[in-house]
Amino acid sequence: MLDEQKLGVLRKGFLEFLVLRIISGASVYAADILKTLAMTEFATQEGTLYPLLSRLRREGLLDYEWQESASGPPRKYYRLTAAGAARLAEFSAYWARINQTIQSLGG
């Protein structure tokens, strides 16, 4: 049986990549990110996502904009900055390489 803890560490490393990927499509609201992730094995909670978003924003990879919402107070919509898009491209290239390595080494 797979060790859940080890897999957790793996997933955690990927989370940043996935969040950047989700945001790269269109500007999204934090709850949308959670909803998208919830359907995958990367299901994440607010307690993890919000600090992550705040750190990515601080690193200049993403930015947000307030938009009025029909229900409740205005919401933050996130989108990638140029630096964020560059980081995502790097990540994607790296992932492709890793994937290839795994495939080529497999028995």
Binding site: G47, Y50, R55, E59
Partner: peptide
Amino acid sequence: GEMGPVEGGGG
């Protein structure tokens, strides 16, 4: 429970 534990996020 849905919110989950808050992580420092200092990175």
